[in-house]
Amino acid sequence: MALRHGRGVAAINYPTGMNLGGDPTQALVHSTPTGNFMVSLSSVDLGQGLKHIMAQLCAETIGVPTERVIVDTADTDTGPHCMGTFASRGTHRAGNAVIAASREARQVMLEVAATALEVNADDLDTDGQGNIHVKGAPSRAISIMDTALVAHFKQGRSISGRGIFLVPRSYPDAATGAMKPATCYAHACTVADVEVDDETGEVRVLAVKNVFEVGRALNPKIVEQQLVGGSWMGISHALYETTEPYYPSREHGPTDFNEYLMPGPGDLAQTETYVLERPAADGPYGAKGPGEMCANPQIPAIANAIFDAVGVRIDVMPITPERILKALLEKAAASPGAAS
């Protein structure tokens, strides 16, 4: 009986969003009279940073500082349609919709500025600081605040835009069955080091090293936050989370989240996280979905590491001490006399 060490590797492809057609998200963008921009969405920010990312995307597309954008995700009864923030889809789906809406609003903004400056809208550009100028002639300029005021009070125009992201339905080819189930895949690879007590079946994850390919990290700190938390959740999926821990009868199972085990601060693996960026053709400025994706590769990596450590392959989650001990007993019974 001993503590046995093992190392496992796993790599994943992870589709961004729901697939097989549809999966819509819509966005509306409009300027206030003072040239701030309002993004209306039904997509929900539950702490993953969606509102900030959407503000960045709108600001980048229209050409204003991020602080000039207000994101309202208040009400799914009244906001533009969104399927929801799940399946790693928020940044990609809502982001594409926000960019489309922002492009339309930017075009109106440039037309208003062109009329005010008596030039052609095609000859105008933004400086990203809140001003519009004639290309090659930066002194011939108007601020976006003045442009909004002119639109509201002189020209009678609404600087606004509509955006939608909708995946075209992919039907299977009649002859081959081939189809395109998703438009965008993120990738990840994890190496896990574990220590397995072959007397108690307990597993300790010593270290996980993760590489995540996320398209483009629109906000590197927010992406890192997702990946570090997600890596921990992947370990939790692999070893802890179940509504029926260790008990054969459902009656003895937990009834609420107080009894739903996840690793605490004393159970942390040494975690390393690296980001690779290979921009997606249909992503908002190349971004893919890192959210749910990042909690996946740890699971098969840990299962493989346990196999490496004690030679039993557990294919049911979570990999509990009980399951490991049963598998070790079965293995010993199958090869009597072999040294354990």
Binding site: G47, Q225, G229, W232, M233, P265, L268
Partner: peptide, 18 residues
């Protein structure tokens, strides 16, 4: 630090940033 926050549950961060 781990000892001090071990009575507090976080479901998002993975504790490391805390």
């Amino acid at each position: 630090v781990i000892e001090a926050i071990s009575g507090n549950v976080c479901r998002c961060t993975g504790y490391e940033p805390i």
